[in-house]
Amino acid sequence: MNRTAATTRLGDKVLAYSELKNDLLFHKIPKDKMIYYIEQPLAIGTAKAGEYKAKFGTDIQAICRNRGIKVVMNERSGKLGQIRFRAQIELSAEERVITLYKSSMEELQQCAGVLLPGRAFSLEEIMDIHLAHELFHDLEFSEIGYTNERLDYISSLSLGPFRIRASVTKTSEIAAHAFSRHLLGLPYLPNLLDYAHMIHSGALSREDFWKLVEDWSAELDNYC
């Protein structure tokens, strides 16, 4: 598959699959259930985005205010060891707070167009993408239930006659990506920006990224 062909395959299912592969229990997912753990969270996030867009439009800041969510801009990078946070949400019965890390947002803005030639992102757009993502997690917490807990559990460990079952946690992230994409009218799931950042930072080459897209597509074809 050449790069042009790979680009045509870079749709929601392929990017959702790339997220699913990061789940700690990915290797435990039955092959005949793989598409289920892609399509179901995509459908959940997309449906909720349509509902919210129809009711409230796309002003994420206003939606957060309406829901009583406090948005905090932190000037720091949000780096903890080798882990870099761009946004995080704290949820409790008393308070819900979304924190955005400004320098991380600015860094992502600089490289966001790496995989989308001609598509520039403003800092506000980058912030809105992350706000929408965290807003969905607030909806999971307060209204609809966590996506991974709504979907079928899988057998994660067997101890003689006993089986331990667990949820596929990355399905919650896939649903949040879909919510953000469809609420804001993005061309792709926003986890594409993670790969743009990796390319920009030198952690991944463009050629290797498109090779990954080919591999993901081929693997998905085997599950269909």
Rank of each mutant, 00 (worst) to 15 (best):
P187G: 11
P187C: 10
E19Q: 15
S205G: 03
A6W: 03
R65M: 14
A47D: 05
N191Y: 04
V168E: 04
S201I: 07
K21C: 07
F85T: 02
N74W: 00
L115K: 09
R163I: 04
H27C: 13
K31R: 13
I63C: 12
S103A: 06
L10N: 11
G113S: 15
P117M: 03
K102M: 12
S167V: 05
A49P: 14
Q40Y: 11
Q109C: 09
F26G: 03
K28R: 14
Q110D: 05
G78Q: 01
E107T: 14
C64F: 06
K79E: 14
E207F: 06
Q88Y: 12
A196F: 10
N22P: 00
D138T: 09
A87D: 11
N148M: 03
L193G: 03
L80R: 14
L135K: 10
F56Q: 11
P117E: 11
Y52M: 15
L131E: 13
D23H: 03
G50R: 05
V97L: 05
D23P: 05
T171Q: 04
P190A: 01
A166L: 01
H27Q: 14
E90R: 13
A62R: 15
N148C: 07
E90Q: 14
E134S: 06
L91M: 14
E94W: 13
L159G: 03
V14H: 08
F179T: 05
N74Q: 00
K33F: 13
E207D: 15
N148V: 00
E107V: 07
G50K: 07
E149A: 11
